[in-house]
Amino acid sequence: MSNLDIVKPENLVYQKSKVLTENVMHYCPGCGHGTAHRLVAEVIEELGIQDKTVGVSPVGCSVLAYNYLDVDFQEAAHGRAPAVATAIKRLNPDCYVFTYQGDGDLAAIGTAETIHACNRGENITMIFINNAIYGMTGGQMAPTTLLGMKTATTPYGRDQKLNGWPFQVTELLAQLPGTYYVTRQSVHTPANVRKAKAALKKAFENQKLEKGVSFVEIVSSCNSGWKMTPVQANKWMEENMFPKYPLGDIKVDGELVKK
């Protein structure tokens, strides 16, 4: 059998989700946002909840997420997505509501909205893309930027005395009684993508339980902001980001995971 004979509908094992639109994503080549979007779409498709899902996009690189995910969507002001999602869910409890935010949006300008939505135990899914940089505005320091890491506003590297410490917001949120599931994943290898997808699926399914926020951090690369090739950036992420932001579940079924 020649390989070309294999290309038949009955042999199809993977294709882009139908919950993704045909729009070409504006993200830089190799950006984790695209992979994360794909996984969200696959989860919505597999759970059969496209007609009940409402997404909330942030300000940042993923501000235009609504152009790619074929579900009802609202674009929030910078940092306010958890407040927006709170009301959508409270007024439409049968809907599956998720926020999709970057590190600046969720952990700097929107810290209060993030913490209070989590503390109230809103029955929403929060997806947090942490690439330790402000990508859209040109690569400035984010709350999660590592010490010593060079960005447009820390050209000599992040200095703790000047800029404070990298913010492990996910560990902080896991301490709140309103979070039910808190996990940290990545999407740079096939194995990590599979785990991240399982986490996202659980985070959406949890909304049925009405037990609080399901929070999925995805540690991602910003190769443009980090000034590396996509493959180099993924390697740098493994070596530098993962020690500070270790992958794995932090809180499951309302219980902190003992390490």
Binding site: A76, A77, R80, T86, A87
Partner: peptide, 9 residues
């Protein structure tokens, strides 16, 4: 912003 979210529905 809760008004924004809720009213948008």
């Amino acid at each position: 912003n809760m008004v924004y979210g809720g009213a948008a529905t």
